[in-house]
């Protein structure tokens, strides 16, 4: 059923869909080192883009540039037509971008539930006084947060661990919690940084389905960075290949698999990795 849904998406003409994210000539230099060079992408609503490349290719840097964890050196980033290049991270997130991290960054002293609840803070309407005085307006919001948190935990299948410390979860579930937490900010664009890293084949399969499912349910546009080709080739509609910060190929999974440049720069190495 899920796969069918994907088929439907793929048959939709990409041009008529609205542009969600647009990166134009984005370049990042660290001192003399060029981490990302003239990166361009035009991401349509509902699209699932795969971002691949060997270690140090600049994939995570692109995520860091999009959410302004680090500033761009040159270029422009637009989100739904709005220039977000110079906006602060928290404002970018508020506009509707969410992400996960390559090296899982959960709030380790907080419970699973609290981790997700924290992410609702960005859209909280009550001011500090309303919250401290526990006025009806805040009470309503808090109830809403509780309920939504519960739904999200169910979505990724961790509701039975609600009160466990997040750091006590096994690796695979920590990744899922991080995805649930990202969803709690009600994003339009979701950036997943190696979501399958450290997962076994079963978990990976489950993750594939999860990614496709949440994309449907929450009307998301997704960019996935992944080393695991089984993930990337199965779920992406389009793939961009980076090497040393330079875009070396772009196309559908089958196009990428046949591209000699990619095979030379990446797939050979990737196979050794796997």
């Amino acid at each position: 059923m899920i796969l069918q849904a994907v088929e439907v998406e793929r048959t939709t003409e990409p041009n008529v869909r609205q542009t969600v994210l647009k990166l134009e000539h984005v370049t990042k230099k660290f001192g003399g080192l060029v981490a990302v060079s003239d990166f361009n992408v035009d991401l349509k609503e509902g699209e699932l883009l795969g971002l691949i490349g060997p270690n140090g290719a600049g994939k995570t840097t692109i995520f860091n540039l999009i959410t302004h964890v680090i500033p761009v050196t040159e270029g422009k980033i637009e989100f739904y037509g709005k220039d977000i290049t110079k906006l602060s991270t928290d404002r970018i997130i508020k506009l509707g971008i969410a992400r996960t991290f390559q090296n899982i960054r959960l709030f380790s002293n907080m419970s699973v539930k609290e981790n997700i609840m924290t992410a609702f803070h960005v859209h909280l309407k009550s001011d500090l006084f309303t919250a401290v005085a526990f006025l009806p307006k805040y009470r309503e919001e808090e109830e809403f947060i509780q309920q939504k948190t519960w739904e999200l935990m169910k979505e990724v299948g961790i509701e039975h661990l609600a009160d466990h410390k997040s750091s006590s979860l096994p690796y695979g579930l920590q990744r899922k919690l991080e995805i649930a937490r990202a969803l709690a900010t009600s994003p339009k664009l979701l950036l997943l940084d190696e979501p399958a890293a450290g997962m076994n084949p079963d978990e990976t399969l489950e993750l594939n389905q999860l990614i496709l499912r949440i994309r449907e349910r929450y009307k998301l546009t997704v960019i996935v960075i992944e080393h695991d080709m089984k993930v990337i080739m199965n779920i992406s509609e389009r793939i961009i290949v980076l090497d040393h910060g330079v875009t070396i190929a772009e196309g559908t999974p089958s196009e990428i698999q046949q591209n000699p440049l990619v095979i030379k720069a990446y797939l050979g190495v990737g196979d050794e990795d796997a």
Binding site: T67, V69, T89, D90, R91, I93, K94, A98, R99, F101, R105, L106, F107, S108, N109, M110, E114, M117, T118, A119, F120, H121, V122, H123, L124, S126, L128, A131, V132, Y138, E141, E142, I145, R181, A182, A184, T185
Partner: peptide, 21 residues
């Protein structure tokens, strides 16, 4: 409150907190 959760999030991981808005 929600504000407290934000404070604790900052304590645990600033970058992650910022990336939750």
């Amino acid at each position: 409150s929600s504000y407290g959760r934000a404070l604790k999030a900052i304590r645990d991981d600033e970058v992650a907190a910022e990336n939750l808005g």
